[in-house]
């Protein structure tokens, strides 16, 4: 599993208080119970803390736009962390 996605999953499990949550690239806010605007910002705060990065307003809201999913989130994290994008499942 992509290392970043795995770390994101840890944060995700904490924020959504769901120890069994498994993230897939296709998963979006609509697929997760309780992923509303408030919880989205809580998730962002936890991700910022975990990865020691800062998101801009446009990036935060962009992640919740239609068509965006966990895959987009991981790609944004990769970009922000300056890492090479890895192919899914590699």
């Amino acid at each position: 599993m992509n290392e970043i996605r795995e770390r994101l999953q840890q944060v995700f499990r904490q924020v959504f208080d769901d120890p069994d949550a498994v993230l897939t690239d296709e998963m979006s806010a609509k697929d997760v119970d309780g992923w509303d605007s408030l919880q989205h910002i809580n998730l962002i705060i936890a991700v910022e803390k975990h990865f020691a990065i800062r998101f801009a307003t446009d990036e935060i809201s962009g992640l919740k736009e239609p068509g965006q999913n966990i895959g987009s989130f991981v790609r944004l994290l990769e970009r922000k962390l300056g890492m090479q994008s890895r192919t899914a499942g590699a």
Binding site: S37, L38, I41, N42, I44, I45, T57, D58, I60, S61
Partner: peptide, 28 residues
Amino acid sequence: TRWIRDYVFMAPYKWVAERWTAHATRAG
């Protein structure tokens, strides 16, 4: 609604939630 969320709600909520996590929900 999205504009209000991004430019009115988000910054102050983040500011509070980062400093006083226990009060974040009520601040929300």
